[in-house]
Design a protein around this nucleic acid. Structure first.
Lengths: 138, 138
DNA sequence: ATAGCTGCAAATGCTTTGCAAGGCC
DNA sequence: GGCCTTGCAAAGCATTTGCAGCTAT
């Protein structure tokens, strides 16, 4: 699968008891209407808002991205320089990371990578598994 | 394999043209003489210095950790809250991450995890592969 | 009406940097 | 002596927070 359709995103927002405010509607539109997987930082999304002639404060972008993550619309990934990316694709999948470009890229879903998992240490269980393949120039 | 022996670490420092200063000697001692894999933050290493009754500025700890990383003595890992960890084990291996404790843990080397890798996108090749398994409470 | 949101600016936390003083060869 | 290092304090960057004013229901 890939990015969730916009309509479904709206429903998830409301079901979670979040009010459909101007800001949240705009942000979900930008995030989910382009219909492709997107690895976006708060900064980048904020710029996208401005580029569309709208205005949402950066703090609200951050807060909203986290709320959307809590609700299951986004997935959060921390890498490289310590920047936080939000992935519009919440399915189990892994990433290429291009350190030069500071860009994330989905690994095609049919590339089989994981063959087995180790046992979790005592008292814990395995949650999410992140595989990040760093890319270098040829 | 595991953590590099102290003597070998000293040699690597000198071979790289780094002067064996008081600070660098102390830090390499703390890092490599305990003889076990360690996932340490600059802050934690700095505290360890103080606990030993010595003094090295935090800035120098940061700088030194990066120099050691450049020289191949350490491996850098960024996770969770965006904190930077330095791993005394530079071999290919992967990690459990306990978000509650903010602790990294090596995955036992005999746990086979990766079975195949996808092709790198055009113009790039695969560098390092990081697998991070998030742990949750039972 | 009122509980929830937003925006601003200030605060935070981690890390890096500029520069003067000190140490190694 | 000359270059590398260090330490301090200041700056930097990404992100979070406090709070007064606004908005959806």
């Amino acid at each position: 699968m890939s990015t969730r359709p916009y309509a479904q995103a709206l429903k998830m927002i409301q079901d979670a008891g979040l009010r459909p405010t101007r800001q949240r509607l705009l942000l979900s539109k930008l995030l989910f209407e382009r219909g492709e997987d997107w690895h976006v930082t708060a900064e980048a999304l904020h710029e996208d808002v401005l580029k569309n002639g709208a205005k949402v404060s950066l703090a609200t972008v951050y807060n909203t991205l986290h709320q959307f993550t809590d609700v299951g619309l986004l997935r959060q990934i921390v890498i490289g320089s310590g920047k936080t990316y939000f992935d519009t694709n919440t399915d189990d999948h892994h990433h290429f990371y291009d350190a030069d470009e500071e860009q994330l890229q989905d690994i095609p879903q049919d590339s089989i990578i994981l063959s087995g998992l180790p046992e979790a240490p005592d008292g814990s269980k395995i949650g999410r598994v992140d595989v990040i393949i760093q890319l270098e120039k040829d």
